[in-house]
Design a protein around this nucleic acid. Structure first.
Lengths: 127, 127
DNA sequence: CAGAATCCCATTCGATACTG
DNA sequence: CAGTATCGAATGGGATTCTG
């Protein structure tokens, strides 16, 4: 979705309904890699390559896209050193850390209940 | 996720690293409506129409698809009454409630920090 | 090493129309 | 009311190639 309204602030007051601003954040968690990057960065500072190695299957492109989005949202900070070869460090901001805590907790939930879900799916598919 | 291009085997390892079964759950949270449905059902039992009214913008089709996926995963229970007109109730299972708790907490985080994120984006886009 | 730029396929989702 | 069925557009993201 990512409305990204430049200029007009949508004045969501007491937020009578649900999707207040949930979407702005959750759309990001939705994409395929953001959560995994957050979880990895929750462990500490990482370089580009380190992230890529730590997250099997992510392509160069998607790591670039994902980290940039996180930077844009103020969740991750990027530090580039003008060395040869270049070196870039990614680290969570305070804001990012507070989100990552939630995400890690969600990841834990996933691990704890994955079998229960797998079984439910089997039962469903058996019909 | 299904990385499968033609010929390429997904080859997901036996979960040696992080993404153990995170994906199974988080892919669902990723799609556009699941979180909103969970949050709404966390408030109580809802009928099909009630859900649709509570979640502005969701199409009939997507509500059907989303609720069915949640049922398949054992997170939501569906009860249909053979009345005329038909009546169908959706309610969280115990498993669903425990996930919804996490999700609601995440939604709260989103609301609390949406301005911080919006500001970060403005700063970024200003460059 | 850390990207940027293309290409292009697959999935997602919305709109619409129909049904029990 | 609570779906099902079909179609088309938009989007996500993988593979590949090139660069500072």
């Amino acid at each position: 979705m990512s409305v990204g309204h430049t200029g007009v602030t949508p004045q969501l007051g007491p937020c009578g309904d649900d999707d207040c601003g949930i979407r702005d954040v959750l759309d990001r968690l939705g994409d395929k890699w953001t959560v995994l990057v957050l979880v990895e960065l929750a462990k500490g500072v990482r370089r580009f390559r380190e992230l890529q190695r730590a997250i099997p299957g992510i392509s160069q492109r998607m790591l670039t896209v994902t980290t940039r989005r996180l930077c844009r949202d103020g969740l991750v900070e990027r530090t580039a050193y003008a060395t040869i070869p270049p070196q870039v460090e990614y680290r969570l901001t305070d804001l990012g850390r507070s989100l990552a805590a939630q995400v890690v907790s969600l990841a834990d939930w996933s691990r704890s209940h994955r079998t229960a879900i797998a079984e439910a799916r089997e039962r469903w598919d058996a019909l």
